[in-house]
Design a binder for these strands. Structure first.
Lengths: 338, 338
DNA sequence: TTGTAAGCGTTATCAG
DNA sequence: CTGATAACGCTTACAA
């Protein structure tokens, strides 16, 4: 004998009572699969739907999650501050999963502990996790994945594992290709703008690697300038660089952000882009599109995330589906700056 | 008669069996309150803890959420792209709530529909929601809040409601104060750099309002320059502005971002900041700290979010706690640029 | 000090 | 076509 609590949301039992059917009928009609639904007469279905509408019934997610062993929540983990790329990625994920009735949540975490991700995975309120972080953190993700049994997807060009789906971007190869592209168009003094890794993380800098390999292949002598992680500082450094006797005729930047600063610096040094100086960034972010001239950039092609998302859903549906390695090679988006 | 599924995580029943106690004992010991725990002899507790460790038991969040009617997940909703301010805010929230055993998730949503927030609230997997958006979206949040019964907190200087906690930032008053500050230090030609609202949203621009009111109070004639939402464009506009005959001797920008572009423009026009031109931004973001000279900015003081977070927790613990209006007035952070 | 048992709201099996 | 009924894993009176 339960007194109906006014503060509490209506349950299927309430709907059943009002529609004068059994709770299981309500369950079938309100959240069963389509074919099962069709086995009910139109009249019953309407009665139930009306009753639900009248009471403002909406399914209790907690109960459903327990019973179905599925929360219909997918998480994307990242280390703040958010990058424009990650922003775009989440937006695509949000839409893709929403169409399939999944919620998407972002889990920001601190790189040293990754505590919030660990908590999320241990508590098990996620059906899957997509992590966008460096290899150091990726290793943690793999560990959490194995002892929480939650399907995890990571982005890494180097890690080999069967504990998680891995997305390969082939960053190194993309930069090699960019160097070749510049060399082919006659550039000789190509300089790489690098950034110090945050927190002295020891992860491999594949973009720099690609630059060095590319330069060696083109038989050009390489030069790396390490910039401070700060627009103004980058700007100043590029300004000095361009004032040198043997000034570069092309720049490849670790990030679009650095490349944008370089374009500004060139502009104010009276150096024409791309005529006197070609500039290429990495990331293919929105920021690069709003400079004058527009920035050529290397990055993940838009529109190809679907394969990743779908594989995540497959793994949720059937845990026996094996982890795979997905290829999502960076593309060269040639715009006005090169 | 259930066969223990190998893929399934151990339950309290498994722990109980191994430790040779009843399931409720395990529950009390592993997730009961402290005083209850102390009523068990050390020996039992140790047996249970050892068994749990051996099996790698971790509480099933879905079952607990159903039973406790509480998910211990708090959401912060926002419209991408993320702002530096929101980044900082989430980081503080993450830490504050984590210390109290709550998870924090971010819910990005699209401003026109707010569908993902609606879904999250309807499904009820959040114990509370903090939304950071403009008044247009805030109205939606209020509607969702009332029909989902989830405690919601919004940021608004104008909305009056008892359906949600409201945080007042007093942006208008802060800008009035900034104008007075500039006027007192002898500035006369103070210009406001404004931005067009995205998607033509009709929300009140309290910063501009404050500027206009402040100028009137100081008996100065006002001038608003509306910039495109784009660093380069702002830069160019400020450059033109500074080349005028009656060039401004002070700028107040709607955002730190715009103020930073202004500082750069001044630098390249050979105009000294702050001697010839004072610059003040809004938001007190990290970006402003990395310019030369450092940017004076208006914004929420760091370290005062605790009151907001604690009130959220109070409302979770007791739904009868009434909604309040919290004051978190913007402060003037005077640095080198003014 | 510990165990029994009744739920939390939903889904799925199975019988009618 | 519909309705009992038994879980899902955990919490918490209440009983022993």
């Amino acid at each position: 004998m339960t007194v109906l609590n006014a503060r509490t949301r209506p349950t299927q039992a309430d709907v059943a009572q009002l529609a004068d059917v059994s709770p299981s009928t309500v369950s079938y009609l309100l959240s069963g699969n389509e074919s099962r639904k069709r086995s009910f007469p139109e009249e019953t279905r309407k009665r139930v739907e009306d009753a639900a509408a009248e009471l403002g019934y909406v399914v209790n997610h907690r109960a459903r999650a327990l019973r179905r062993q599925r929360s219909e929540i997918i998480g994307v983990a990242y280390v703040p501050p958010v990058t424009p790329w990650f922003d775009a990625f989440s937006a695509r994920a949000l839409r893709h999963f929403a169409e399939r009735d999944y919620s998407l949540v972002q889990i920001p975490f601190e790189s040293d502990t990754a505590e919030s991700v660990q908590r999320a995975l241990a508590r098990g309120y996620l059906d899957a996790l997509i992590a966008n972080c460096d290899d150091q953190d990726n290793e943690k993700m793999l560990a959490y994945a194995t002892d929480s049994n939650v399907p995890v997807t990571i982005f890494s060009d180097t890690i080999v594992t069967d504990a998680a789906d891995v997305v390969r971007e082939f960053q190194r190869e993309a930069v090699i290709d960019a160097v070749r592209y510049l060399a082919d168009s006659g550039r000789r003094r190509i300089v790489f703008l690098d950034y110090e890794a945050p927190h002295g993380s020891p992860h491999v800098n594949l973009r720099k690697r690609g630059y060095l390999d590319g330069m060696r292949a083109a038989d050009l002598s390489s030069r790396v300038v390490t910039c401070a992680d700060n627009r103004q500082a980058t700007y100043d450094q590029v300004l000095r660089l361009l004032a040198e006797d043997e000034a570069p005729d092309a720049l490849i930047s670790f990030s679009d952000r650095g490349a944008v600063s370089a374009i500004w610096a060139a502009g104010h040094a009276g150096i024409r882009v791309p005529d006197d100086l070609a500039v290429i960034g990495c990331g293919n972010t929105a920021e690069g599109r709003s400079t004058v001239p527009e920035l050529t950039s290397l990055g993940i092609p838009e529109g190809d995330f679907a394969a990743i998302f779908d594989h995540v859903l497959e793994r949720i549906d059937d845990p026996a589906v094996p982890c795979t390695t997905l290829s999502l090679p960076w593309t060269r988006f040639v715009r006005a700056s090169s």
